[in-house]
């Protein structure tokens, strides 16, 4: 007896969110099937891959990544080179230098960098704050203002500062709000509820539901994303139908498997190889669990993940 194929059909879909403008604009979401389940129905918009750059330039990146950006001296040049990476769909600029516990760069200084980066590229832009909720409230509102007309993603809007970030990005300056919660389906939903109550349209929200590097409590990430996609599609939960964006590289390039020098554990081999593998595996697992976009750093990871997406969709 041949196989009795039973496709899993849902009468709900993930919201379609357009990021950027013009020819290079990208669309996230729109599917009504689980990730890469093309045998159940079409995946309208393939998941997208972003390249992460930092306002700190090339200070904290691996040798292989530095080599890719060789010859770039300004943030504009770095951004342009990032946008030209094979497989890149968008650029994600993180403003980690704004962290009051770190470099504590001023808002004006960071806005200048944001403008320089935005002017240098023609692909969609995601801007990530410094992770300090208070400073981000102020900083990201100004970023949203500075990027008027770019239809950029401004993140993270968290529970602590969603009013400031959400109102500026989602209402005043018509950008996309990236709502960030910490690996918990209820928190993710709650944040979407209160952000839409502010008046932000659901089609202007994408979620970062949190991630971890492989091996670091990754089971919570899997189950959170599995449950969110399950609720969005099978229960038609409108407050969980926002596409998911996952910054992978900021997690994976910090763990010891990726950064411990070869001299510490000679059998581990070069750190660069381990860092790439950690980034590729974590990104793959995020995508197959439900991420509609991942943010990566290494050119090899970007090329590999982008190729895998093309083969699967």
């Amino acid at each position: 007896m041949p196989f009795n194929q039973k496709p899993q059909k849902f009468n709900a879909k993930i919201n379609t969110v357009t990021i950027g403008t013009g020819d290079k604009a990208i669309k996230l979401g729109g599917e009504s099937v689980f990730p890469f389940y093309t045998f159940d129905g079409p995946i309208e918009n393939a998941p997208k891959v972003g390249v992460e750059i930092s306002d700190m330039g090339l200070e904290n990146v691996s040798e292989g990544i530095k080599a890719y950006y060789e010859g770039c001296s300004t943030m504009g040049e770095i951004a342009k080179k990032a946008s030209e990476m094979e497989g890149a769909d968008f650029v994600a600029l993180t403003l980690e230098g704004g962290d009051p516990n770190g470099e504590d760069k001023s808002v004006d200084e960071l806005i200048a960098i944001v403008k320089e980066v935005a002017d240098a590229i023609d692909c969609p832009l995601v801007v990530e704050g410094c992770k300090n909720a208070e400073k981000d409230g102020d900083l990201l509102a100004k970023v949203a203002d500075a990027l008027q007309g770019k239809n950029a993603v401004i993140m993270p809007a968290k529970e602590e500062n969603y009013k400031a970030v959400g109102a500026a990005a989602g209402l005043a300056y018509n950008q996309i709000v990236g709502a960030e919660s910490a690996v918990d389906i209820n928190l993710a939903k709650q944040l979407n509820v209160i952000t839409t109550q502010l008046g932000v349209s659901p089609e202007k929200i994408i979620m970062n539901v949190g991630t971890a590097a492989a091996g670091y409590g990754y089971e919570y990430v899997v189950s959170t994303m599995d449950r969110i996609k399950g609720a969005a599609l099978s229960q038609d939960d409108k407050m969980l139908q926002m596409p998911i964006i996952t910054p992978v590289s900021s997690e994976t390039w910090g763990v010891k498997e990726s950064v411990a020098p070869e001299a510490d554990n000679p059998e581990w081999g070069p750190a660069e190889d381990r860092g790439i593998s950690m980034e590729i595996m974590t990104a793959t697992a995020d995508l197959v669990s439900g991420s509609n976009a991942v943010i990566l750093r290494h050119p090899q990871s970007v090329a590999t993940i982008s190729k895998m997406i093309k083969e699967l969709v």
Binding site: G215, R274, M281
Partner: peptide, 29 residues
């Protein structure tokens, strides 16, 4: 990438050409 993909989605035995520490550390975690 496929090691991760088929760990998540239903591979009982997954076959690859190379499995060094670079693969093992993230994969086994």
């Amino acid at each position: 990438a496929l090691l991760a993909l088929f760990t998540m989605k239903y591979g009982s035995i997954v076959v690859v050409e190379t499995l060094d520490y670079a693969e093992a550390l993230p994969l086994y975690g």
